[in-house]
């Protein structure tokens, strides 16, 4: 193999230099992560998670609703941001000093199929879009987000609820 001549070395190094410049510029241009609605981070010692409310004309299967609720409770608990994570209807939440209440409203739901996903790889995705609202006890909206949980390739349909729960936990991590 012939060694590189000077011209080749110069051209390679100039390409590498311009690539580094482009990378630096793109990093500088990357938008900052979306800040919470309020100026600073929210604070609360307790959180109450309510069940997914019904949406007009949208049928979400019962097991999907339950799986979403249970996965969200597990993922919020894992964030360790709150001393107490209360479920809907828990009487102890009434005595919690600074409580944040989370409500979920389904916006869109597409029931896919595991078989279709794995056989075609492009069809059969399951997705659920919800409006997540963090409110104070008196109903004041502190934070609102539109989140989507989906399963595209491998896994059962209920895996979309786990994906959604992970996104709710990520929202809590960046806002509290």
């Amino acid at each position: 193999m012939k060694p590189f001549n000077r011209a080749a070395i110069v051209s390679i190094s100039s390409i590498a230099f311009s690539a580094v410049l482009l990378l630096a510029a793109s990093l500088h241009a990357t938008p900052a992560p979306q800040a919470p609605a309020s100026s600073g981070k929210l604070t609360a010692s307790a959180i109450q998670i309510n069940r997914m409310g019904p949406a007009e004309g949208l049928l979400v299967p019962e097991d999907f609703r339950i799986s979403t609720y249970e996965n969200i409770i597990a993922q919020v608990d894992k964030t360790k941001k709150f001393q107490h994570v209360y479920r809907e209807g828990d009487k102890r939440a009434a005595d919690a000093a600074d409580l944040v209440i989370v409500n979920f409203m389904p916006v869109a739901y597409t029931e896919g199929s595991q078989k279709k996903r794995e056989v075609t790889t492009i069809k059969g995705a399951t997705s659920i879009q919800v409006k997540v609202q963090f409110t104070s006890r008196d109903g004041k909206v502190l934070l609102e987000r539109d989140l989507e949980g989906k399963v595209r390739f491998f896994g059962e349909n209920l895996r979309a609820t786990y994906d959604l729960a992970k996104k709710v936990a990520a929202t809590i991590n960046e806002s509290f």
Binding site: I66, E70, R87
Partner: peptide
């Protein structure tokens, strides 16, 4: 078949089992 059971704990907290 999937059996979904909704129930309350002793504090009134809602639970769901699949």
């Amino acid at each position: 078949e999937v059996l979904t059971v909704e129930f309350n704990d002793e504090n009134g907290g809602f639970h769901g089992a699949i």
